[in-house]
Structures are given as structure tokens and as C-alpha cells.
Computed example of a mutant assay.
Amino acid sequence: MAVCSPPIALAFPCLSPAKFSLNSCTLEMKFWGKRRNRVITLAASSPNSSYNVERKRKVVEHLCLLRANEDLSDEQEKDMLDNLYTSQYHMAGIVAISLGRTSDQNPENYTHGVFMRFHKKEDLAKYYQNTSYLRVLKEYVSPYCHDLLYVDFEAEVEDDILAIFRKGEEFNYGVEFVLLIKFNEGALDGPAEDALTSLANLAFEFPSLIVQSTQGRNFNLESKEYTHAIVTRFRSVEAQKIFMDSSEYNHIWESKLLPIILQTLSFHFLVAPVGTELM
């Protein structure tokens, strides 16, 4: 298998032979206002870092990728995203939500992405059957999109209210990066978990770049395209690039991930507080 670079921000990674495909796209959110600049330094966490928290809380992460119709208007897109975003206020169990639009063409032709967090699997199951969600899907998503992909996984976060609900200054800005992976079946219970643990440990070491990172095995039986997912909130586009250009990240990718990966899909989008616009 030819060696391929890991996903890199703002660029399409290379493609290896047919056995392994790597696709990426960029998602961007529209709000009102201006985006702040941040100074990023590559520094490992100190012993006193607030990220060194032993207590963990389980959460359930929900990802949805959409393929919108080519004739989708700006007004229709706004209605769709607004109704998806405000669904959190009408349904119990949704802990956090972010969503956005692709700004680059990608081989899979996904145009939009949605990330949601729930307290537990039962809350997610109720969400899928919720009449408010079904109404949003029927009136504001299905008329404008011709395909959906769902990925759901259980993860752990710091047992802290800001970390669980993704609230506070640290979550007001940054880049939401999603990596979907399909591992070789023979690697699922050993090498795959080892590789993902290495990535999680590396993300934990750099709070100056990463606000939060979660990962887990996809348990959605309707989407067998990918076995695992990783969601990482970077502090900025620059922070994402620094991390993914680092020798540590590339070493894990080339030595532990590439040998056992069949397929990946990565995308990211800029985030901002409601009521502001990224400039």
C-alpha cells in the first residue's frame, strides 16, 4: 500500500490505490459579526492543566452528513440549517449541536454536516422518533436533500458541566473537525483501538490547540460505511494545521492507522456564537 498523508486542514489529502480512499471537505457556518484572531503555540499540557481530569462522563455523539440538491437556494439552506439548529430547544436530551456547509467539492458530494451530543443512547433513540425532529426532517431537510448518512458513537468527556455541554468561551470559536474511519475487520478489536488510543492521548497533551476530542465505534446499523468516528474541536484553523502537520500526529497516522484503514472521510467547519458571522 502506498503511503498517504493524514487529513490536513484546508487541503485535499492524496489518494492511495483503490483499497484505501481519503476524502475531505470544508464546512463553514454563517452568522453575524466578526471572527476573533487567536495566538496558538504548540505546548504540551502541564501537570496543573485543567484538562488533566480523571473523572469522565459518557456521552453519545451523533453525526449526520447531507447531500443537498444542486438547486438549493440560499433561503432554503438557511431554513434547513436554522430548523436543525433550533431543534435542540424543542427536544429533550440534546446536549450540544453544531452544523455547517461544505465549501469545497468532495468525491462523496456531501454538502452539509450536523453534530449533536446526547446524554445517553436512550435519548438518541427518542430523538430519531421525536415528532418535532420528524417534522423538521419532512419539511426542511427531505425536500432539499437527496441522501443522508448517520454515524452514532459513545464517547467519554471530562465530568465537567462546560465540557459536557460544550459551553463557555473555549467553545465559542474554532474549527469542528470530523474524521470517519473504516478499519479492516481483523483490526477492530486490537490494532484499531490501540491507534485510536494513541490519537486520543496525543490530543489530550495539547490543550493549547485542542478544546475537546471524542471518539468511538459506530453503533448505527444503517451506516456500515464507517466503523469509527472522531470529533475534535480545534481552537482555530491555525491550531488544526499545526497539530496535523506535527511529527507526532503523522507518526501515529503512518505507523498505526494507514496499515489497517480501508477508507476515511474527513470534514471540518468554522464555528462561532449564535448571532455573529465569521468574516
Rank of each mutant, 00 (worst) to 15 (best):
F20G: 05
M1C: 07
E222K: 13
K34W: 06
V157E: 15
Y110T: 02
Y51T: 02
I242G: 01
T102V: 07
T232M: 11
K58F: 00
L258K: 06
N250F: 01
P6F: 07
V3P: 00
N201E: 14
E176Y: 09
S5P: 03
L65H: 05
I252K: 09
A239E: 13
Y85N: 12
Q263A: 04
F177M: 04
Y144Q: 04
N48D: 14
E108G: 00
K126H: 05
N172H: 15
Y89V: 02
P191F: 08
L81S: 05
D147C: 05
S45W: 00
V151K: 05
P107K: 13
K56N: 11
N172S: 14
S87Q: 03
V157A: 11
R135M: 09
H228R: 02
T26V: 10
A200F: 01
A9P: 02
V59G: 04
S255N: 11
V271R: 02
T111V: 03
C64R: 14
T227S: 15
R135Q: 13
R235Y: 12
T232Y: 06
C64H: 06
H251R: 12
E154I: 05
R36F: 07
R166M: 13
K58L: 01
A187M: 06
D74S: 04
A192E: 02
S223I: 03
D245N: 14
K138I: 02
Q215S: 13
V141P: 05
P13K: 12
S21F: 03
P273D: 08
I97K: 15
E158G: 04
E77G: 08
Y133T: 00
I252N: 11
Y127S: 01
L162T: 08
M29Y: 01
W253Y: 14
L149S: 15
L72I: 15
V178E: 03
Q212R: 11
I94Y: 02
V53T: 11
V231M: 10
D71V: 12
H146F: 12
G100A: 14
D194E: 11
I164V: 14
S5K: 15
N201K: 10
V231I: 09
S247P: 03
R135T: 13
E158H: 06
A96F: 15
V59W: 00
I242D: 09
D74H: 03
L137G: 00
C145R: 00
E54M: 01
L180N: 07
E122V: 10
P143V: 10
N184D: 05
N220S: 08
S142F: 06
V60G: 10
A43R: 00
V53M: 11
A2L: 12
V53Q: 09
V231L: 11
Q76M: 10
N220D: 14
D245E: 09
L66R: 05
A272S: 15
E169T: 14
N83E: 15
L148G: 00
L188N: 07
L270G: 10
A163M: 09
I181V: 08
R35V: 07
G216A: 02
N52F: 05
S236M: 01
L42A: 09
W32I: 03
E75P: 02
D123I: 04
E169F: 08
Q215W: 11
Y140S: 13
S246Y: 10
M80P: 02
P7C: 13
P143N: 14
S208I: 03
F115K: 01
R36V: 14
G190I: 00
N220C: 06
M91T: 13
L199F: 12
S142G: 02
Y110W: 15
I210L: 04
S24M: 12
D71N: 15
G186D: 09
E61Q: 10
A229D: 01
K138G: 04
